[in-house]
Structure formats: C-alpha cells, structure tokens
Simulated scan of single mutants.
Amino acid sequence: METFENLVRAEFTPKQTFLNTASNGLLPARTVSAVQQAVRMRAEGTPLGPLYEDVEAARASFARLAGVPAERVATGASVAEYGGLIAAALPAGAEVLTAEGDFASLVNPFHMRGDLKVRAVPLERLAESVRPGTALVAVSAAQSADGRLADLPSVREAARAHGARTYVDASQSAGWLPMDADADDFLAAVGFKWLLGPHGASFFVAPPDFGGLAPLLAGWVAGERPWDSCYGPVEELAHSARRFDVSPALFTYAGLRASLELLEEIGVDVVHAHDVGLANRFRTGLAGLGHEPVPAPGSAIVSVPGLGHRQGELSRAGIQVSDRAGNLRAAFHLYNTPADVDRLLEVLAA
C-alpha cells in the first residue's frame, strides 16, 4: 500500500507555496491527465459515453465520502442552484435562519425570494436561535471567511426540536472534514476546492423523499431514461436525486472523478489529521510572533486579523494566501508540508 507521502508526491508539483485551497484546490496529476484525455476525445470525435460514466462514478464517490447512497446525490454546477430549489419550496413568510457573514452562494437564494424572513445571527448562537416558526437553518460547515466550524450536532438537535430542516454547505469542508450528510435534510458542496476538481461541478444530497423540492432546473438529464427524454416534456423524472441534475460539464467531471478517487485512496480521516496538524502548527507559530488568529479550533483554515494587507507581499514572495475582509487567510491541505508553514511564518516575521 502506498504511503500518504508517496501518493501526494506523485500527484502534486506546486511551483509556489500554495496555501489557498479555500479559494481553489490544486489539481492532481491524474486529474490533469483525465481532463486532457476528455478534451482529446472531443477533438477526435470519439463517442462520449465514457465521459457520462465519469459523472456517475463521481456521484458514487462523493456519496461514499458523504455517507449516503448514490441515489440521494445530484450533480450540478454550483451550490446556489440548489439553494434556489430549496428556497422555491418554502412557503411565503417562512423563516430561514443563517449565520452572519456566511457565504453568498448559500444565503443569497433565500434573500432573492423576497417573501421569506431571513434572519442572521452570530455563528456561535445559531443553535440557540432556532425558534418555533423557523422553517430552515442554512449554514456552512466551515466558514469561508475565517474557517470557524459550525456546531452541526447542536444545530441539528435544535432544528429537530422545532420542526425545522437543516441545509449544510460543505464547500469549505468536504475533502478534509468527515461528512455525515445523512444527519441533515440537505447538503451541497462545490468540487473545485478541497475536493481537488476543476471548476464547474457541485454535488447536492437530498432526502429520500426529495424534501418537497420541485426539479425546476430539470432538462433531459433529469429523466429516468435520459436519452429517451431529449424532446418535449420529460415524461418520467428520475426516481433518484438525479432528477435534480443539470447537464454536466463533462470535462470537469472527468477530472473530478480522478480527484475523488485520490481522496478515497488516502482517506478523509488521514487528510483531516494532516491538514489540521499543519493549521495548528501555524497557530502556534503565530502566537510566537504576537498574532492571534480568529478562534477556529479544529479547522484547516486559519484567519489572522489585521494581516490581510500583506497578501500582496506574500504573493510576490511565492506564497499564495487570501485577503478576506482585512484578514490573512491560510488554508492547509494534503499537498502542504511543515516547510510550507515555516516559510509563511518566516516571511510574516520579516
């Protein structure tokens, strides 16, 4: 069995110190090869059946990572499209509870309805803020801006006690933080961050009874027999969550299939320990420099107030991080090493 180090070394060859997975992940070598092969197939006129098989393989792989049957997973292009489906299913006047400053793709579809009551509270008060009349609690498992983790067990418990549903955006956690999608009503995640895929893919986990959602974006791929559903209304929607699919970006899913296979080979538990270990190394080093990050225990994302202005300087030094709301955001993933952490601390100390 290949070791973690050997697998990673064979797949990633970053030219810089890349600590910006919260923006987008690096592509493994196998993913680059898969995308190139998919492009060649289009250029050569080869039948594209294998690329549709890639979509199904990626669906099944994500389902295993999420801990649900593949029949509950839909594939799409963005988190916002699935938030839109959930928003459309809510009755007028329904209350949606969100965390202050959560990512726009999660919260904006509910604001766009115009007739929902969207209430935002501090993340740490989310569970206690669920009340009678709350219809849905929508929250990111890990906050994009600063890496803080939602207390999902407490949120779920509070939601169930008040008859509310939960909708989790795992875009900043899927791939390094173990998922338990079966514990939530809805879950969505993009594929281009911690899942290491190309841009243009997302996954959505729906309940077995579809949660009252209407497949408003349904085209031919949402049919039980897609190739018999190309003309006129779709006569029979897929019996699975595939009824919520949108026409797939085939090149993207060809690559994402390979990326997910790598994550499964390594194991998310192993990735989690590696990523959080590096983040904690950075937190310890920051303390030695007199800096205090936003408290986010257990997170692979570290956000440091007051240092965002140094992002440009760090970029020129070959270190890729983000400036988010004045904070310096560093995100640690499987291809990072202790040397990357030490290099970042060295430049910050200068």
Rank of each mutant, 00 (worst) to 15 (best):
E44Q: 05
W176R: 09
A127R: 01
R156F: 02
E56G: 03
G306T: 08
A188E: 06
A238R: 06
D151Y: 08
F244A: 03
G318H: 08
D340K: 03
L307Q: 09
F103H: 12
A183M: 06
D228Y: 15
V276A: 06
S259A: 13
F18I: 06
V302W: 02
L278G: 10
V68M: 02
G290Q: 12
A92S: 12
T46G: 10
Y82P: 00
L344T: 05
W227D: 12
E11P: 15
G49Y: 14
L260E: 10
R125Y: 03
A238V: 04
V55Y: 01
S173Q: 10
K117I: 06
I319T: 02
V270D: 07
L345D: 12
L51H: 03
T284C: 13
P198T: 09
S173N: 10
A170N: 02
S299R: 08
K15Y: 04
A60T: 13
G277R: 13
E53V: 15
T31D: 02
R316K: 12
D185E: 14
L334I: 10
F203Q: 00
V270R: 09
R160N: 01
E5A: 11
G114K: 09
L106T: 03
L90Q: 08
F12T: 04
W227K: 12
G312L: 08
R59I: 08
A273C: 11
A66R: 02
M179N: 06
S61V: 07
T98K: 00
R156P: 00
F204L: 10
V73G: 02
G267N: 08
R243M: 05
L123C: 04
S78Q: 13
R40P: 01
M1P: 12
S202G: 11
L123A: 02
L65M: 08
A158M: 00
G211F: 00
D151P: 09
G285S: 11
P338D: 08
F186K: 00
H162M: 01
L286Y: 06
D102S: 13
E56M: 11
T252Q: 06
P153C: 07
N280T: 14
S229D: 06
L48Q: 11
F192Y: 07
E292I: 11
R165F: 00
E157T: 07
D323M: 12
G133W: 12
N20M: 14
L116Q: 07
Y167I: 00
N108W: 15
A99V: 08
D115M: 03
T21H: 09
A170T: 01
G84K: 14
D169H: 01
R148A: 00
L195G: 09
H272G: 02
R343K: 11
I86W: 00
S33L: 15
G212S: 05
P198S: 11
